[in-house]
Amino acid sequence: MSRCRRGRHITSKWRKTRVLWMKRALRSNIPETRRMTRDSLKSMLHRYRMVYIKPDVGTYGNGVMRVEIRGNGTYSYQSGLRARQFASFNQMFDSIRKLTRRRRYLVQKGIHLTKYRKRRFDIRVMVQQSPSRRWEATGVIGRVGDPRKVVTNVHNGGKITPIEKLLAAYMPERKKRIFVSRLKRLGMMAAKQLHSRFRGIKEIGLDVALDQRLHPWVLEANTCPDPYIFNKLKDKRIFGRIARYARAYGRL
Results as ranks from 00 to 15, higher is better:
Ser76Met: 12
Lys23Phe: 05
Tyr170Trp: 06
Met171Pro: 09
Leu113Ala: 09
Trp21His: 12
Gly73Pro: 03
Tyr77Glu: 03
Gln193Arg: 15
Gly158Glu: 08
Trp14Arg: 03
Thr74Arg: 14
Val57Ser: 07
Lys42Asn: 12
Lys42His: 14
Val51Tyr: 04
Thr114Lys: 15
Arg15Phe: 13
Lys42Pro: 00
Arg177Met: 07
Arg24Phe: 09
Gly157Gln: 09
Ser132Thr: 11
Gln128Ser: 13
Phe179Thr: 03
Met1Leu: 07
Ser43Gly: 03
Asn156Trp: 00
Val67Asn: 10
Leu194Trp: 10
Asn222Lys: 03
Arg117Tyr: 01
Ile178Leu: 13
Ala83Glu: 15
Ile53Pro: 06
Lys159Ile: 08
Met188His: 11
Gln78Met: 12
Phe86Ala: 01
Ala191Phe: 15
Val57His: 02
Ser2Ala: 14
Leu210Ser: 03
Arg66Tyr: 02
Val51Gly: 08
Ala137Glu: 04
Asp211Met: 12
Phe93Thr: 00
Gly158Ala: 05
Ile111Gly: 05
Gly80Ala: 10
Arg241Asp: 05
Ser2Cys: 03
Asp226Phe: 01
Lys16Ser: 05
Val125Thr: 12
Leu26Glu: 08
Asp211Phe: 05
Val154Leu: 12
Ser88Lys: 00
Gly158Ile: 10
Leu81Pro: 00
Asn62Tyr: 02
Ala243His: 13
Leu26Tyr: 11
Val57Asn: 04
Gly145Ala: 15
Arg117His: 14
Arg134Ser: 09
Val154Asp: 03
Ile201Met: 11
Ala137Arg: 09
Arg134Tyr: 07
Val140Ile: 12
Ile96Tyr: 03
Lys236Gly: 07
Val107Glu: 01
Ala209Met: 14
Lys202Asp: 13
Ile242Thr: 01
Ser196Trp: 02
Leu194Val: 04
Ser76Glu: 13
Thr152Ile: 06
His46Thr: 05
Ala246Arg: 13
Arg143Gln: 13
His155Ile: 00
Met36Pro: 03
Ala209Asn: 08
Val144His: 06
Gln85Val: 13
Leu106Ala: 05
Thr223Gln: 06
Met1Ala: 07
Ile69His: 01
Gly158Ser: 08
Val218Ile: 15
Met92Thr: 08
Lys149Pro: 02
Trp135Met: 09
Arg244His: 13
Ala137Asn: 13
Val107Cys: 02
Lys118Tyr: 14
Val150Thr: 15
Arg241Met: 08
Leu20Ala: 07
Leu210Lys: 06
Arg82Leu: 11
Met1Ser: 11
Thr161Trp: 04
Val107Gln: 05
Trp21Met: 09
Gly250His: 02
Thr37Tyr: 01
Phe198Gln: 02
Ile204Tyr: 06
Ser196Gln: 10
Leu166Met: 13
Gly80Cys: 06
Ser95Glu: 11
Asn90Ala: 12
